[in-house]
Design a protein around this nucleic acid. Structure first.
Lengths: 244, 244
DNA sequence: CTTGCCCGGTTGTCCTACAACTGCCTGTGT
DNA sequence: ACACAGGCAGTTGTAGGACAACCGGGCAAG
């Protein structure tokens, strides 16, 4: 993935003092230097100890507070809330490859298709068909050199509609993240022009399967649907590897 | 989950200026005020526009940078990296119910089982069997009133081993988070004592299925495995609803 | 036309000062 | 001796200024 150095090591330079401070604090936190619920040194003392300005310490602490590791209370101090960093999970995901992210998305979507078969409402089906119709329209209007950007957007819209039909907010939110992540990392890994094209027929098969109410059928239809882009991605990865 | 007001609204007071600034920026970002890859106003201008100090703006920006929404480059400016907030995903998930989280976990694990059937190594199988053996040992030593804490830990260990056998780092990390989240939210929703008990036989069936290398068989075995606790959770939710 | 330098703009860091708030300690009145 | 109010020291929150580090483009000299 092209998105490197989020907070950790910079590509080829020294990282900022704030980032260094964050890392120091994170290390001491996971090392258990201060007990959970306990108070960490004051900003002033940390600044003196680490030989940085109080502002730098403040920015570092603020980041860790928003990461859920610390809690600050004005007039009292800053306290340890958790020694593990939940945000590290997503950072790790952002670093991983296209194939891995794609598989996670597939996991979420096939299960969503199963649940959608059991819980869908007429409105859900309508939304899927609408997105599909828009997609088909764009493709029909430009048989050659279709506007990738637009089709990708409609495609994402369709898949989101499928997941929403599962009526599971947690699943929807996680999928929304991975859906965007997949497209983003594909765009950076390959060019815009090499995006795998979409096949409307398999999409319609999935809608029919969900409407039938059979989870097994929905799952296999979804798997069929995802097989195409997966194969395309594998092929692209192979050609890129060969080019190198 | 017990972790409430992370950044949003404080329990009973006005939130800090920095948090207000963060929220303002987040809103404008997801509203698409600035295009992805585009430059946001300078710290100086934002400070003047929002009527806060530059320090306040800096802390807000620093948080969003570490959340993956912005990128700062010294001498150039601060740029939009993503209009969706990955951290918001986790926060939303933490707020959702046990059933929803359980379904997400199931989605990840069944797909993991499929992949594990295709990619597992002898070491993976050994790790699963080892965890299973420890689990069986604990149960055998205390047929009645088994030590829930220990069995839950070993159970999690087993499931983690299954997911790791899929050899997908992104999947592993996401699952690790959901696995912990599921157990935590179950512990808070129900008591410790009401945790559904584990059945070793179905676990062994899953290992055998993975070892056979048949993804379909692995998936159905995994589904069978997850059906038990799911049913137990549904029942518990029903009794709790009835109690109310 | 090329090259090197300078300059305005922007983020990074530090400092001081003060505001807002908390908990404790102390002084005072009963 | 005890209760209570007030102040006081300590801590985080916010503001603003100053300078350093760095980038990009414009400009002038060759």
């Amino acid at each position: 993935m092209a998105t490197a150095n989020n907070d950790g090591l910079q590509v080829a330079g020294r990282r900022s003092l704030v980032d260094a401070t964050i890392e120091q604090l994170r290390e001491q936190l996971s090392a258990g230097t201060w007990p959970v619920g306990g108070k960490i040194p004051t900003e002033h003392e940390l600044a003196e100890r680490l030989q940085v300005g109080r502002n730098t310490v403040r920015e570092a602490i603020r980041v860790l507070v928003h990461a859920g590791m610390l809690v600050s209370r004005q007039g009292e101090g800053t306290f340890v809330r958790s020694t593990s960093d939940p945000a590290a999970v997503l950072r790790g995901v952002q670093r991983s490859g296209v194939r891995d992210v794609l598989e996670v998305r597939a996991a979420l979507e096939t299960e969503a298709a199963r649940l959608a078969a059991l819980r869908h409402t007429p409105e859900d089906i309508a939304r899927m068909r609408a997105a599909l119709a828009r997609e088909a329209e764009v493709i029909a209007s430009q048989p050659e050199r279709a506007d990738r950007q637009a089709t990708v957007e409609h495609d994402l819209e369709f898949h989101t509609a499928v997941v929403e039909a599962a009526h599971n907010p947690a699943l929807t939110e996680v999928y929304r993240y991975f859906g965007a992540s997949v497209h983003e990392s594909m765009r950076t890994a390959f060019g815009d022009h090499e995006m795998p094209e979409v096949v409307v027929a398999t999409h319609e098969a999935l809608v029919d399967a969900i409407e039938s109410g059979d989870p097994e059928r929905a799952e296999s239809a979804c798997r069929e649907l995802l097989a195409e882009p997966t194969a395309a991605v594998e092929q692209l990865l192979a050609t890129i590897a060969a080019r190198k």
